[in-house]
Design a protein around this nucleic acid. Structure first.
Lengths: 190, 209
DNA sequence: GCTTTAAAAAGTAAACT
DNA sequence: AGTTTACTTTCTAAAGC
């Protein structure tokens, strides 16, 4: 059994796609969004930032949104409701509740142990390690689908997971593989 | 039927034209990097295999050729950084890196086959700096101890080798400046300095003043 | 494939003082 | 030389080129 008691994970970013089920006139929307940017030539959506909750929203004329930078699902719900209230003031009509789908969660974490990344690159199948390009090992977990960046300090970044449970499961699979190839116990000498 | 023939001829024409273009691009890169003939031949072999396996789809011929050159250098332990190749290629480093990872995966170029030990870079840099065999051995000893102490994971091999040669030069009285070692290793002086500080500190090296 | 957004890890880089 | 800012890697959706 893999020991996960020393492993820590922290949510750093959540990305969600949202459908408001209403068409939006972006030219009108920009006027009520304080810190927003809209250059249809370079990007088709309005880029809007909220201070509370601290998120960034991409607003499209189709009534669909992308909300990023949130630290919790609740932050996303609050941001969406806040935007809906603002939109109502310029006459937007909402017949049904918005549909929110969590698309990506990014975690930072710590496995609590140091690693020899050269040793990992040589024996862990399907991992990438190019120290001249990036200091971490890149490991892709098939199920649940996620990618883990593992650094020599034992710190990690897990992205692509759609829930905290999936992120933990992905980390557990990485540890199982590391253990399987005898890459776990080393600490002082390699 | 005639149409079919013509289309086949056109296809093979295009394939031949692409191969000719690829090989001329390979020639250009190989001569500018002064690569040994066996490396150029290996790169050509990798490229033909990539074409045979249909790995060029969605990628530019130039990025795949550059990736094959880089892969051949790694396989044959002829140190060349991705930057050196990117400098003379029309495609940027990011794109060459992507093609490199893609062909590495699909041509079964495992990390083990592609692994170039930091010590493999020592001779290349030492040649360019005109450093003696004694300096090279000293630098390699420093790198091996650094590896055993876990000081190399995640760090740029080029930066580590540059710092090791700099330190070996100081210890063996055959000094090269940080600027000189940084230049041949294609890293900044700041990187040499950072690696130097860490190695001297953690390996308890006594630098004569 | 690209464009834009957010976030962390650790290394390297570049621009200033 | 030291500091600050910024870029490398991973992910994901959106509409359109």
């Amino acid at each position: 059994m893999v020991d996960m008691s020393n492993v820590k994970l922290r949510i750093e970013n959540i990305v969600a796609s949202v459908d408001l089920f209403t068409q939006l006139n972006l030219e009108k929307v920009i006027e009520i969004c304080p810190n927003s940017k809209y250059n249809p030539e370079e990007f088709p959506g309005i880029i809007c930032r909220f201070d509370e909750p601290k998120v960034a929203l991409l607003i499209f004329s189709s009534g669909k949104l992308v909300v990023t930078g949130a630290k919790s699902v609740e932050d996303i719900e609050r941001a969406v409701n806040k935007l809906i209230q603002m939109l109502k003031r310029i006459g937007a009509k909402f017949q049904r509740a918005p549909q929110i789908d969590i698309q990506n969660m990014v975690f930072s974490g710590d496995i609590g142990m140091e690693f020899n990344l050269d040793a990992i690159a040589l024996s862990l199948p399907n991992c990438e390690y190019e120290p001249e390009q990036f200091p971490g090992v890149i490991y892709r977990v098939k199920e649940p689908r996620a990618v883990i960046l593992l650094f020599s300090s034992g710190k990690i970044v897990c992205s692509g997971a759609k829930s905290e449970h999936d992120a933990w499961e992905a980390v557990r699979k990485l540890l199982r593989e590391l253990e399987k190839y005898g890459l776990i116990e080393e600490e002082d000498e390699w | 039927r005639l149409r079919k023939w013509q289309s086949r001829l056109r296809v093979s024409d295009a394939a031949e034209r692409n191969l000719a273009f690829a090989l001329s691009e390979l020639d250009r890169i190989a001569s500018q990097l002064k690569l040994p003939r066996h490396v150029e031949e290996e790169a050509a072999r990798l490229y033909r295999e990539a074409v045979r396996k249909g790995l060029i789809r969605g990628r530019s011929i130039e990025s795949v050729i550059a990736a094959c050159v880089y892969a051949a250098c790694r396989l044959l332990k002829v140190p060349r950084t991705l930057d050196e190749i990117a400098d003379i290629s029309r495609v940027d480093k990011k794109e060459i890196g992507r093609s490199f990872r893609f062909i590495a995966r699909n041509l079964n170029l495992t990390p083990k086959k592609l692994f170039v030990k930091p010590t493999d870079y020592v001779n290349k840099f030492a040649d360019e700096l005109g450093l003696s065999e004694r300096i090279r051995r000293r630098a390699i000893a420093i790198l091996e101890e650094a590896y055993d102490r876990g000081l190399t994971s995640g760090k740029s091999p080029a930066g580590l080798v540059a710092a090791a040669l700099y330190i070996a030069g100081l210890l063996e009285d055959e000094k090269r400046t940080q600027r000189e070692v940084a230049e041949v290793a294609r890293v900044t002086e700041v990187t040499v300095r950072n690696r130097y500080k860490e190695l001297v500190e953690k390996l308890n090296l006594k630098i004569p003043v």
